[in-house]
Simulated scan of single mutants.
Amino acid sequence: MNQVAPLEEIARFLRHIKRGALSLALVWVIWLLAPILTPFVASLMLAWLGDPLVDRLEAAGRSRNTAVLLVFALMIVLITLALLILVPMLQSQVTTLVGALPAMQQWLLEGAIPALEKRLGFTAAEWMDPQRIIDWVRSHWQAAGGAAATVFGYLGRSSFAVVTFVVNLLLTPIVTYYFLRDWDRMVERVAALIPRDHIGTVSKLASESNEVLGAFMRGQFVVMLALGAIYASGMALIGLNLGLLIGMVAGLISFIPYLGATTGVILAVLAALVQAQGVDIKLLAGVAVVFTVGQLLESYVLTPRIVGDKIGLHPVAVIFAVMAGGQLFGFLGMLLALPVAAVANVLLRYAQERYRSSELYAGHSAIIVPAGVGDPPDPLTPVVTEEPKKS
């Protein structure tokens, strides 16, 4: 018996090492394939969002293929309507922005830069002289050549990125349809791979993760749209010409705590300064009021009522997850960051429960209390319940 226990410990340790190695290999493969995985991940999310409605239609008596076609058509119609409404509005805003560029340049050269020169005591206007710029480039031609190579390389990568974006955009609806059609079959195949002695625990964690992800994805999407509408309508009311564009940008990136509001305030203040050709206290005060009201509504009305407290993610954890995902896997990492963080939060809560019920946490000084006996004398002392022995 004494020799069996160490062998079991060694075997368990080797199994842990094997699982860790497989996990690292999986992460490495995802990192390598990140540039082509984006449409598949986006399609997987869309299929996951649409599957409950497909199941309801199936329960109402329709076939799986009919239900999938109806839900897929509904998705296409909603996206098309959104584009038909938003694209003309954005086009108008972009036209306004392009038309305001000469006024922006004039204000920058004749108003902002002279004011900064006067306050800070340096001369910046001479650097706006084209001949001076040409002379500076000639004197630093080697560095300029390296910078030019970097810029052209970036433009080449950007052109390839545009082509990739178009391909992904065309590929996403096709993959979404197949994921929706075969969703239940894929879930069954994944469930069949789970070891039978862990099926109960995995099912419980999967159900809880699904609930958390559903609350986050659906709720956060509604909050983003609501904030975009609040910011855009508010800045339109105060008379900011680019208010719609700025409000939509601030709303779409509001899933990162405080980033949407901060970005919106900076862009709105710059737009207000350019539009007024200086400091307009009334316009700037209007911007402050709009974003203050938006943040108050998000904090005390929208997020508590729509998202709720099921996510349990601290704002710092959200910011770190998005930055880490973007750093490791690019856009795919940013797309997966918050869902992965929500699931990881569920797993961490489960690990905490296991730890608190383990001997490592309870220690050897735990009081053994038979089942059915009253409370222990000291509430701070860990308790291990002992079932009564059968006679």
Results as ranks from 00 to 15, higher is better:
8 E>K: 14
9 E>L: 15
10 I>Q: 12
11 A>W: 09
14 L>V: 10
16 H>P: 08
18 K>V: 11
19 R>T: 15
22 L>I: 15
22 L>H: 11
40 F>G: 08
41 V>P: 06
44 L>M: 14
48 W>T: 10
50 G>R: 02
50 G>E: 05
53 L>V: 11
54 V>G: 01
56 R>I: 05
61 G>N: 05
61 G>S: 03
68 V>G: 02
68 V>M: 01
73 A>D: 08
75 M>E: 09
81 L>E: 08
83 L>G: 06
85 I>F: 14
85 I>P: 04
87 V>Y: 08
91 Q>L: 13
94 V>D: 09
95 T>E: 08
97 L>W: 03
99 G>S: 11
100 A>Y: 05
105 Q>A: 12
112 A>R: 08
117 E>T: 01
117 E>Y: 03
120 L>Y: 14
120 L>V: 11
132 R>H: 09
134 I>K: 14
134 I>D: 14
136 W>S: 15
141 W>C: 11
142 Q>R: 15
145 G>C: 11
148 A>V: 11
149 A>H: 14
149 A>G: 14
150 T>K: 14
161 A>L: 11
164 T>V: 10
164 T>N: 12
167 V>H: 04
171 L>F: 04
174 I>H: 02
181 R>S: 01
182 D>E: 02
183 W>L: 00
185 R>I: 06
192 A>N: 04
195 P>A: 04
198 H>A: 10
202 V>K: 03
206 A>Q: 06
212 V>T: 06
215 A>Y: 06
216 F>P: 00
216 F>E: 01
220 Q>I: 09
220 Q>W: 08
223 V>K: 00
225 L>Q: 05
228 G>T: 04
233 S>W: 08
233 S>Y: 06
236 A>C: 10
238 I>L: 06
241 N>E: 13
241 N>D: 13
248 M>N: 07
250 A>K: 01
253 I>Y: 05
253 I>E: 02
256 I>P: 02
258 Y>I: 14
261 A>H: 07
262 T>D: 08
269 V>W: 11
276 A>G: 04
282 K>D: 12
282 K>P: 07
282 K>R: 13
285 A>N: 12
287 V>S: 03
293 V>P: 01
299 S>L: 14
301 V>L: 10
305 R>Q: 13
306 I>T: 05
308 G>Y: 07
310 K>W: 10
312 G>E: 06
314 H>G: 03
317 A>D: 10
317 A>M: 08
324 A>G: 09
325 G>P: 01
327 Q>S: 15
329 F>T: 02
331 F>W: 10
334 M>G: 14
334 M>P: 07
345 N>Q: 10
346 V>S: 01
346 V>K: 00
347 L>D: 06
348 L>N: 06
349 R>D: 06
351 A>I: 10
357 S>G: 14
365 S>C: 10
374 G>T: 07
375 D>W: 12
376 P>Q: 07
377 P>A: 15
389 K>Q: 15
